[in-house]
Amino acid sequence: MPLLEIRNLHVCVEGREILHGLDLTVNAGKVHAIMGPNGSGKSTLSHVITGKPGYQITAGRILFKGEDLLAMGPDQRAAKGLFLAFQYPVEIPGVTTMNFLRTALNAQRKARGQSGYSTPHFLKKARTVAKQLNIPQSMLKRGVNVGFSGGEKKRNEILQMALFEPDLCILDEIDSGLDIDALRIVADGINAMRSPDRSIIMITHYQRLLNYVVPDVVHVMSRGRVVKSGDKQLALELEASGYAQFEDAA
């Protein structure tokens, strides 16, 4: 059974169709890259999978671990092991990163029928993960993403991913706005998460990230569909010849 299975997905925003019958299958333990030009529907796909309001699903289905994902609320999906690293992480003033992480993790655990982490236990866990990602302790005491640099915000997303240990991670342009050093730290964090039970979908414009996190499967999206799939060679071809060839295919 695939971890994620999307069949014939049609999605509208304010009456306009953005995804026109998208198919995607992600097996456990695999890293997929989804590439494509601006406006091809990549971010819409990540929002629909995670349940962001404002999208109308007019046809198709999404199965996650064999269950109907579209019947679940976004918080239930998170508790089931679905994680989205946001392209633009939001700022939440007055709420320390530590408090945010603990509230979120314990909410997920509660939904799964597990007991919540005690504060000392949680602090220890968070500090260990932060250290691995080169995140200073002081950052955990600051308001969520408040005054963080672009690189810090992206590292904070990876920190959350590492802490929540989801089964499917969707990384929406995790490489945007990162300098080469920050990119390396983020990539190391992603690679450390690779495991036979966990799958990762990376949405990106650029081949650069894929040099650090080598994908098992590469998909090209254009005009609301997956128009071509292949291995990592496909990304290199794209880098050389651009997306124009697929505009027609769509």
Binding site: K52, P53, D75, I92, N99, F100, A107, Q108, Q160
Partner: peptide
């Protein structure tokens, strides 16, 4: 949505933001 995607209910999310 950011909070809810992390597993919080709508009310937990509002309460967290308000408390901040």
């Amino acid at each position: 949505f950011y909070c809810i995607q992390r597993g919080m209910s709508q009310e937990e999310a509002v309460s967290l933001v308000v408390n901040g």
